[in-house]
Amino acid sequence: MSFKEEKHGVVKITAAPHVRSAESTTRIMWSVVLSLLPVTAASIWFFGPSAVLVIGASVAGCLLTERLFGGQRNSISDGSAMITGLLLGLCLPAGFPLWMAFIGGVFGIGFGKIIFGGLGQNIFNPALLGRAFLQAAFPVAITTWPGPAPDWWVLRGDNFALPFMSPGAADAVTGATPLGNLKFGDDPVATPLLDLLLGTTSGSLGETSALLILLGGIYLAIRGHLNWHIPVSILVSVFAFSGVFYWLGLSPFSPLFMLFSGGLMLGAWYMATDMVTSPVTHTGCWVFGVSIGLLVVIIRIWGGLPEGVMYAILLMNALVPFINRATQPRKFGSPRGKPEPAAEKES
């Protein structure tokens, strides 16, 4: 008598363990999307329908590419392409032409992710790679920060520029980001901290309100859906390094200004913590985070660009395979402080 006969049903033969934690990749991804909703809502509140359009275009670019080239697996439902789209949209300016946002999404997913084999196999954060591509391809459009509009529903800038054509934003009212203003401005004044926290400043869609990003990030950290070591190490190292340079008189940015301005919050809580492109061990995460912090401070103070979070994270993404190699866990039973490096592979 077999189980099957007895049960008149399908018998399950599986390998141990037979119980699993309730955690699932799909659930992690969608809760990241969920936690991004307040920030998205804030960007719509601040920038009006332009925010909806730009975020929509980048999400559309990501989802479409994922759907067309993402392979057999139902690659949309895992939510990772949605995150990429949202994050990419959130780090673009409100007046950005939609066709460019769409291309950013296509590039990010296509060449940042699918070419490496899809979900979980990419080296660079797809959203940031898309953003870096846009920065290199359309440097003017992506640094044109629209100023305040007379009414909420007025489009900021030239969202509807024809594909492959320039936005006519040359004579639009532009505002400077707090970072850019303090660095390149003719009348460098540090934006008040409260404005940075609430997000009533000019900048990319999602990087304005540090407070909401912090809330979303902390929610994820509590749920265990992001590795808190990374944002904490980034923020601590940015605070420490910028503090040292500020105190030495080498930088105009006070540590708190550094923390809450620009894309640091979004980058630290959402971009750097992308599980796929961050190190796997805690030691690795600290190395990763502290290096990002240092690079951010260096690029912000001495670099040619006002903002360096994106490049800092991308550069460290490239180093992650190396960090992973170098920070293998200690072999059980071997003395402490003596990690089992890959060097042993040699012999």
Binding site: V19, E23, D78, N227, T277
Partner: peptide, 29 residues
């Protein structure tokens, strides 16, 4: 309900297995 299984997705290098392994292996790798 006790041994519910879900689809196998690609590894996302979250490192949870490394935090779980009692003998400090790198199951991800």
């Amino acid at each position: 309900s006790e041994c519910k299984r879900q689809d196998i997705l690609p590894c996302i290098r979250c490192g949870k297995c490394i935090d779980a392994c009692p003998v400090f292996l790198n199951p991800q790798l």
